[in-house]
Structure formats: structure tokens, C-alpha cells
Design a protein around this nucleic acid. Sequence first.
DNA 1: GACCTATATGCCCTTTTGAGCATATAGAAT
DNA 2: ATTCTATATGCTCAAAAGGGCATATAGGTC
Lengths: 122, 122
Amino acid sequence: MQLTRIYECLCDETRLRVLHVLSPGPLCVCHFQAVLREPQVKISKHLAYLRHRGLVESEREGNWIVYRLAGKPSRELAANLACLQDCARENPLFQRDLARLRKLAPKLAATGPGGCAVLAAR
Amino acid sequence: MQLTRIYECLCDETRLRVLHVLSPGPLCVCHFQAVLREPQVKISKHLAYLRHRGLVESEREGNWIVYRLAGKPSRELAANLACLQDCARENPLFQRDLARLRKLAPKLAATGPGGCAVLAAR
DNA sequence: GACCTATATGCCCTTTTGAGCATATAGAAT
DNA sequence: ATTCTATATGCTCAAAAGGGCATATAGGTC
């Protein structure tokens, strides 16, 4: 049953946060580092985990690798991601991430070429 | 975050099946054995797992122990259980369990005192 | 080509998980 | 008191998970 595969992806806090901040739109790894404040290895591994299981997709853009939610989610996945968004709405940790995400765009734009071009270009 | 605790409960197929067949109403362990066709130890351990994490509650009734879904589920739990029911609707495995569950009441009633009195009494 | 930046991966370690077997326990029946 | 039935639990084992460190890789820049 593929449903358990989905839940396996959801039973780690870091992965939940990744999926949550990915909901508004694509991000590259440096964004996750900035928003989640977690070490690069940790984030990279969880992204790989989610990618292998088809929850997210990645694409290279110059030096950066951009992650997005899977394009054609199954009914189950779509339902559970929606449920996650719903649960996140009242969760302080998730809301903190979201706040950092919102602040990120202008700040990165200001750092110039050192920042990540993808989000800065928005 | 308690959300991950919930997902940890959901990431095993046996536990998903348990929660699913528990949705219509309480069951005792022998029912789970009959419906899920899994060994007693396996079922008992997963029930204990769910009980320790507060997803189900149990109560002794004579020789049997009756399990039911937790009385006052959190918002997150309620949302995820609803989502699970939704996902189960189109899933053959879950539907098979449900079919066995429906057949169970009359059959147990016929076996007399050897069967489980709880469901038979319905 | 040498170097830098962003990201991924291999290795190691500790903890958790899920399964099974054997056994314990609680209450009912005799 | 013994026995039976239903269920739980301790032990062991193999596998997986999750974290960190070091290192590899890919694409830019000089």
C-alpha cells in the first residue's frame, strides 16, 4: 500500500517542515537552511528521502538546486498534504518557519550575488 | 510537536488497518484477528503501541478487551483520521477488511458462547 | 587549471522499529 | 484449586532511521 509510504515521509519533524514551507512555492536548499535553521547535511538528506519517494522534485539551476512539491500528486498525497497544511495553521513551529520564509525574499535580494538568485528574482 | 507522533502511528500498515476498522465502532482483539487475519502477537503489540500514544482506548469486558478510538481526539488527530477514512475508501485492502467486518457480526453470533460476546450482542 | 560555492553521499554510530517465540497474567469455567 | 481462554509482555534479532563528520561532485569564477 502506498499510503504507508506517504506516512513514513510525514513522521519526521524536519520533513514536515520541509513540505510545509514548500507549499507556497519552490525553494532551493539554501532557503531551507535559512528558514529551518538546520544543518545542510540534515536538510539535504531529508530532501533526498522525499525525492526518492516522489513527494518532491528537484531541478538544477546554475549552482543551486530547486525543490518543489511533486507535480502530479496521487489522491492520497494531495489529501494528506492538505491535511498537513491545515494542521500547521495553528502550530507555532510551522508558523515561525513561515514567518522566516516571508522575510527571506527581500533579505536575500539585498545580499546580492552571494544570496540565492532564485528567490531573489521573485 | 505531537503531529509527528500521530504520523508515526500511521506509518505502519497494520496500524492503519486497525484504525480503519475501528472507525465504525469498538472491537475486541479477537475481531481484529478475524478481520485482519494477522497473528495475535502482532495485533496486540500494535494495539499497545496505539494505546500508549493515546490514539485508542481499551476496557476489559469479562474475558475480552475492547478497543475503541480515543474519546477526545485533538484537532490534528481528528483531521488525520478523517483523511485516512477518505483514503481508505478506494483502497482494496481496506475495503476487504471492511467486508470481513460486516460479515463478522452474524457469524460470531452463530458460534454461541465460544465467539466474542461483545460484537454478538449488537 | 585552480579555486569557490552549493549540494549530495559514504561511513559510522545510536536508537527505534517490527516480527516471532515463549511465557506471563487476568478473569471465567469446571 | 485447576484449567481454559483471551490478551499482554519480555527477549532476541534484523532492519531501518536519523544524526554527524568527512568527503565527493557539479557548476561557476578567476
